[in-house]
């Protein structure tokens, strides 16, 4: 569960990135967060993964009060969520297997569990055959799927996905959202940040629009994929 209460984020540069934002995302939901560049989407994501704290207000994610989370608890909190970054943020010198197994090592899982879990999540994103490949040898779409596999490795309750289709062609973009929907159907809450309105209109569901740091729209709409 994600909850923001009266959240304001004011940067030292003078920019008010978020203004009095109130938001609640329940467990099991699939939510699109849309908005133009500079609207405040990235700030919202930074808040949800405790990269920054709000200037005022409170942020709760997975039962953690992020506004008051102490430095030594941040790592534990981040292991409870999965994050897919727009620019992937994979360790390029590692193999696909190492990038995914790394988060399981962080969670202090046993070798046996790692040997079972990594192929499972790689198969989920259809990259089982690329396990031994170096990450830098993969295409943008494949790297995106490795990032998703890594985010899913620890079986998080919440998956935050930032602009996942920015580097993909339309066909791959639709396939990727289908994959995220499938993950959501298995019980994981998915928050997808995007500026691609066509994609959002196609899939529908709960859509939150941010403009100039404020939520201007938060409703469920029907998608075209349901009509087809």
């Amino acid at each position: 569960m994600v909850e923001l209460k009266n959240v304001n984020v004011h940067y030292s540069s003078g920019v008010d990135a978020l203004k009095d934002v109130n938001l609640r995302i329940n467990d099991g939901e699939f939510v699109f967060i849309v908005g133009e560049s500079g609207a405040g989407k990235s700030t919202l994501m930074k808040l949800m993964m405790r990269e920054i704290i709000p200037s005022t207000g409170r942020v709760f994610v997975n039962g953690y009060n992020l506004s008051k989370l102490k430095g030594n608890k941040i790592a534990k909190f981040r292991r409870s969520i999965g994050v897919v970054f727009q620019e992937f943020r994979l360790i390029q010198d590692y193999t696909v297997y190492e990038n995914v197994s790394f988060v399981l090592r962080i969670a202090d899982q046993s070798n046996k569990y790692i040997r079972q879990r990594v192929p499972y999540v790689l198969n989920l994103v259809e990259l089982g055959h690329k396990a031994r490949s170096k990450t830098k040898e993969l295409s943008g779409g494949e790297q995106q799927r490795v990032a998703i596999a890594r985010a899913l490795a620890n079986d998080p309750g919440l998956l935050i996905v930032d602009e996942p289709t920015g580097n993909l062609d339309p066909k791959r973009s639709y396939e990727l959202v289908e994959l995220l929907k499938e993950i959501n159907r298995c019980g994981t809450t998915v928050v997808m940040i995007t500026h691609e309105h066509n994609l959002v209109r196609y899939f529908g569901g709960r859509i939150i629009n941010i403009e100039n740091g404020s939520i201007t729209f938060d409703e469920n709409i029907g998608g075209q994929d349901e009509d087809e």
Binding site: M49, E51, N72, A75, K76, F77, R78, R79, S80, V83, F85, R89, L90, I91, F102, V103, R105, I106, A107, R150, N154
Partner: peptide, 12 residues
């Protein structure tokens, strides 16, 4: 920074 983002402790 990637290690930090995915939840690694400083010691790790």
């Amino acid at each position: 920074s990637i290690m930090k983002y995915v939840g690694a402790t400083n010691g790790f």
